[in-house]
Design a protein around this nucleic acid. Structure first.
Lengths: 219, 219
DNA sequence: CCAGAATGCGAGCGAACACTCGCGTTTGTC
DNA sequence: GACAAACGCGAGTGTTCGCTCGCATTCTGG
């Protein structure tokens, strides 16, 4: 016989419940963004949402589940909205354009969902979120690697992997600076991030036709 | 009359006490490195040092004081050993050399004291450490800015500040990757970090004599 | 309209943790 | 050797926080 029913049959939710869940996740996002995951107390999240602790636990079995659900939704939305940001690129596309559009998309997402950065880069995140982050990280790396492979045909795989890691790391550093500023200054940092990535990669694609001297203005 | 004695007259310590303090700080460094500041329990630190919680509190008034003392010693050693790493540079020095030696020094320090990274970049650090980190950060930024000012005479102050922030951010990103690898792969990441910084800065100093085409190998 | 399920509450439980206290041991000083 | 101070211990204290429980209220299907 079947040892057990579903591990958890999806509880029948009323519309009210769905609203509460959304409300709680929004509150959790706010609290996580300002205080980080571990420092955020479930009571604080419930208070932020204007409900009692008991109500919170009506919808989430524990604190980790809140972060997981939030992370799931964010990653889902990210994949859906920006999944193609790193799609294989026509090798004739200028490097500036490829880097610029990818950076713009990811920066836009992170600016719209600041909790994403807090959840993914906090040192105190629960195991499950870390797994998701690692999965996303790996996905991004392989995408970048594929993209670079098309641009840099004569580079060893190990160098390719390392370069991809560098690109992601440099992006992350730039993202932090971008999120720390606003308005015109933020835009300036976005541009600097693009510059850093382009200049880092440009010498590697130097053998391609028409790619010389893109960095220097003509004399 | 003097309102009070010294806020705290330095307690008379025996040699044994000094040894215990060093031992406790070493244990704290280990625990902070592996678990971060907030997740590290004072009992765990005491256990790691092989003493009782009461003994720990014989020498430190609270958990924060442990991190502060550790941070103080690290920053002191850093200033002493590597304070000149960013000293003003002869403008004729090749950019590669200036960047290379600065990166080498800071990387070496961080590899020798991995707890430094954990303490300074954790999101959960106590206020006092954050202040020290900010002070160090500001010092580094102004040093970098001064160094860049010598290399890039015709750049506005705002751009200079932004560029300095970018350099520090890029360094931090590279440091993380360097610390995440070992042996030959670590060395390769050090080189990539240098490349990224040099290539980022090189176009800005393009007008200087003899600084053209340092990035590309001759045809 | 009514039984049962879903929702909502908030006092309170248990564990973890920073920190203390009383007392015994070691060390420096005269 | 005696006295005081520094050292060392570990059970204990107060608090915070994740989470529960019993009960009241609101919704939904028949």
């Amino acid at each position: 016989m079947p040892a057990n029913q579903e591990k958890e049959q999806p509880r029948r939710r009323q519309a009210r419940g769905e609203r509460r869940i959304a409300q709680l996740l929004e509150a959790a996002a706010a609290v996580f963004t300002t205080t980080g995951y571990t420092a955020a107390s479930t009571n604080a999240i419930a208070r932020e949402a204007g409900v009692s602790p008991g109500t919170l636990y009506q919808f989430f079995p524990n604190k980790e589940a809140i972060a997981i659900e939030l992370g799931d939704r964010l990653i889902h939305e990210m994949r859906e909205t920006y999944g193609e940001a790193l799609a294989p690129v026509d090798p004739t596309t200028p490097l500036e354009e490829a880097v610029g559009s990818a950076v713009d998309r990811f920066i836009a997402f992170n600016c719209e969902h600041p909790v994403f950065f807090a959840l993914m880069h906090g040192p105190d995140i629960p195991g499950r979120i870390a797994e998701e982050h690692d999965a996303l990280h790996a996905t991004l790396l392989s995408r970048i690697e594929g993209l670079l492979a098309a641009l840099l045909p004569d580079v060893t795989p190990a160098d390719l992997t390392r370069t991809a890691h560098m690109c992601l790391g440099l992006y992350k550093a730039g993202l932090e600076l971008v999120l720390a500023h606003e308005g015109a200054e933020r835009e300036a940092y976005v541009q600097e991030l693009k510059n850093a990535l382009i200049r880092y990669l440009d010498p590697l694609v130097g053998t391609r036709l028409g790619r010389r001297d893109t960095l220097r203005t003509a004399p």
